[in-house]
Simulated scan of single mutants.
Amino acid sequence: MSTFYRIAYRLDFHPWEDAAGHPPFVEKIAELLDHEENGREPPYGRALDVGTGSGIWAVELAKRGWQVTGIDIVDGALRRARDRVQTAGVDVRLVHGDVAELHAVGVEPGFRLVLDTGTFHGLDSAQRHAMGREISAVAADDATVLLLAWTPQRRGPLPRGVSYGEIETAFPDWDVTDVGPTHFEAPKPVELLMNPNERWYRLRRE
Rank of each mutant, 00 (worst) to 15 (best):
Ser2Leu: 12
Arg6Met: 03
Ala8Tyr: 12
Phe13Arg: 10
Phe13Lys: 05
Trp16Thr: 08
Glu17Gly: 14
Glu17Ile: 12
Asp18Trp: 15
Ala20Tyr: 14
Pro23Leu: 06
Pro23Ile: 10
Ala30Val: 11
Glu31Ala: 15
Leu32Phe: 13
Asn38Ala: 14
Leu48Val: 01
Asp49Phe: 11
Gly53Phe: 14
Ser54Gln: 12
Ser54Ala: 14
Glu60Lys: 02
Glu60Trp: 11
Leu61Ser: 02
Ala62Arg: 00
Val68Ala: 04
Val68Trp: 00
Thr69Cys: 08
Asp72Tyr: 13
Ala77Asp: 07
Ala77Tyr: 11
Ala81Leu: 04
Ala81Thr: 09
Arg93Val: 13
Asp98Leu: 09
His103Ala: 15
Ala104Trp: 10
Ala104Asp: 03
Val107His: 08
Val107Cys: 07
Gly110Phe: 11
Leu113Glu: 02
Val114Arg: 04
Leu115Arg: 03
Gly118Glu: 05
Gln127Ser: 14
Gln127His: 10
His129Thr: 09
Ala130Gln: 03
Ser136Asp: 15
Leu148Asn: 07
Leu148Glu: 01
Gln153Val: 05
Arg155Asp: 04
Gly156Arg: 06
Pro157Gln: 05
Leu158Gly: 02
Gly161Ser: 08
Tyr164Trp: 13
Glu166Asp: 09
Ile167Ser: 07
Asp173Lys: 13
Asp178Asn: 10
Thr182Ala: 09
Glu185Ser: 14
Leu193Phe: 14
Asn195Glu: 15
Glu198His: 15
Trp200Gln: 05
Arg204Ser: 13
